[in-house]
Design a protein around this nucleic acid. Structure first.
Lengths: 141, 141
DNA sequence: GTAACTGCAAACGCTTTGCACTCCC
DNA sequence: GGGAGTGCAAAGCGTTTGCAGTTAC
């Protein structure tokens, strides 16, 4: 996503535009592997050595509040941040904790069909499939 | 579930049968609200005042390893334990964190249909829908 | 100018760990 | 009798908070 779009996005939501927020927002929106706060911190630290982990967390929480990212918490380890709020399936490797997005054909239709009799109004959803990724399977042989 | 079944379940998985394990296992299997370790601790403490939180955690981890419960981690708050490993939808209230199970008609068929082109072998799944429960909606009026 | 944001460090909440004691088999 | 399980307290880890200094607007 271009800088200008991110600036507009932040302004529209009454968030001041700072270098840190731009960096974090641009970074998370460009990533499809659902990084943790710590991964973001380490990756951005090269470009911007004074950024702090606290600011990463605060920014991610702001982005969560304005609906730009979803949190994916797990039983163990850190929360992962998912910039994809559309219906999709997270393929989660239970060994290395990698996460891959998966979009089956007609997923929106299938999903609508699944929840057609639901009596409540969803404000979000999460679909995970746990498996062992190729690399981890090979590593075990 | 009867005590004898739980005893068999533990023995079959090479877990020694102790009063604490019996209590925790029986308790979690009887609950449909996906309690946290702390909730379990407080509820069992009445019956068995010397049980410790550490033992609750250790037992839950053992039960997880033998596939009796699933962990539901969230961005905030404690992990919740779900004794239902069949396909179902967790209706999660984002306000009070209550969790309700939901079984749409034909959910297994819909799910099979959704993942029919998936090239990996699932070892588990999790489907959440986030919403605001009736009580929380009313409370906000 | 001022309210919001940042960086830092300390605090926090949930979970795991280490260890001496106890209990199941 | 021996190894697994328990209870306790301390440690661990990821995240939030408080606050003084800084920045966007």
């Amino acid at each position: 996503m271009e800088n200008q779009h991110i600036i507009d996005l932040l302004k529209k939501n009454n968030l001041k535009v700072t270098t840190q927020r731009l960096l974090v927002t641009k970074y998370i929106l460009s990533r499809f592997d659902h990084p943790s706060a710590d991964q973001i911190y380490h990756d951005l630290h090269d470009k911007f050595p004074t950024i702090s982990l606290g600011t990463i967390y605060k920014t991610l929480n702001s982005l969560k509040e304005i609906g730009v990212v979803n949190e994916l918490g797990f039983g163990e380890g850190a929360v992962r941040y998912d910039p994809n709020t559309k219906i999709h399936i997270n393929l989660v490797c239970t060994k290395c904790n990698s996460i891959l997005d998966y979009y089956p054909d007609q997923i929106q239709n299938s999903w609508n069909n699944l929840i057609k009799n639901l009596h409540v109004k969803p404000i979000g959803q999460r679909i995970d499939i746990y498996y062992k990724c190729k690399e981890c399977q090979n590593r075990d042989l």
